[in-house]
């Protein structure tokens, strides 16, 4: 009996593993995911380091609710307002989707600022993570531009007049300003062309750029690792010369390299 069971078990295992092996052999994706999930992170990281993934969650909420809204929203001055009214007041759970999109935008922006503050306070933008900081700044700018373009779409008085001011502000920039304002407005006045442009920017161009940059951002986080809190006595990568005497003055003298090899104290050099 046990033999039969084990044979069946083997069969099941093979059936489960076959597609995974198939995928791994052709793409290496399974190994990549395994590396991502089981990679080591510094032992002293905790809640502050969740702000990045929290921001990603808020972005995913925006992407999902935005896609649903796009199924019902009609981007034209004559239909936009009515479609928003319909989504909010009549459509089943439409209020929840629009409410989540609307308030999710604020949460997304707040989390980006908090995440940025954490990175700044931890000095995590320093070598070798400079490029990832720059990508983060671009993500913040693009995120705020998402907020600006999305604000017009409900086509109510608040959104219309805020966009008038916003477009005029862009118009005051030297050299490119008037062209930028003209491009955003799309015509002689804010109307059908403006809605189309803001809509295209808001749900095609900007989210595409955001997705791409977030992918790059995450790739660099995985490649370079997460920073320890700088004040942690166990911070990964800390200077040995300063820490060693305060924690255990004899570590390097009595048992050289017993735990970490000779390089820890620089003896090998």
């Amino acid at each position: 009996m046990p033999r039969a069971k084990s044979a069946r078990r083997q069969q099941i295992e093979r059936a489960v593993l076959y597609p995974l092996d198939w995928l791994e052999e052709r793409s290496g994706l399974i190994g990549g995911v395994k590396y991502f999930i089981f990679r080591k992170v510094p032992q002293d990281i905790g809640w502050p380091q969740t702000l990045g993934s929290a921001t990603l969650t808020a972005f995913i909420v925006q992407a999902v609710t935005g896609a649903i809204l796009a199924m019902y929203y009609k981007p034209h001055p004559e239909t936009a307002y009515e479609s928003i009214r319909y989504i909010t007041n009549d459509l089943t759970l439409g209020w929840l989707v629009r409410g989540m999109h609307r308030w999710g935008a604020s949460v997304f922006i707040i989390l980006m600022f908090f995440h940025m503050a954490r990175v700044f306070l931890y000095g995590a933008y320093k070598y070798p993570r400079e490029l990832n900081w720059i990508i983060g700044v671009l993500l913040l700018a693009l995120g705020m531009f998402e907020g600006f373009t999305g604000y017009l779409l409900p086509w109510d008085q608040t959104s219309y007049w805020a966009s008038v001011v916003g477009i005029n502000i862009n118009g005051t920039a030297p050299f490119l300003g008037p062209f930028l304002a003209q491009f955003l407005q799309g015509g002689a006045e804010i109307g059908a062309d403006t809605i189309s442009r803001f809509y295209a920017l808001h749900m095609l161009l900007l989210p595409g750029a955001l997705f791409a940059l977030i992918g790059l951002h995450l790739y660099l986080v995985i490649r370079l690792g997460v920073t320890s809190p700088p004040w942690s006595p166990e911070a990964a990568g800390r200077d040995r010369a300063e820490v060693a005497p305060t924690t255990n003055g004899r570590a390097g003298l009595v048992r050289p390299g017993s735990r970490g090899g000779l390089t820890r104290t620089g003896v090998r050099k």
């Binding site: 999930i37 089981f38 992170v41 510094p42 032992q43 070598y127 990964a236 200077d239 970490g260």
Partner: peptide
């Protein structure tokens, strides 16, 4: 320092999952 960081994480770090 970054080399030390990588060694420290390998030696004393915890798995992400």
């Amino acid at each position: 320092q970054h080399q030390r960081y990588k060694e420290d994480v390998q030696r004393t770090g915890k798995p992400f999952y």
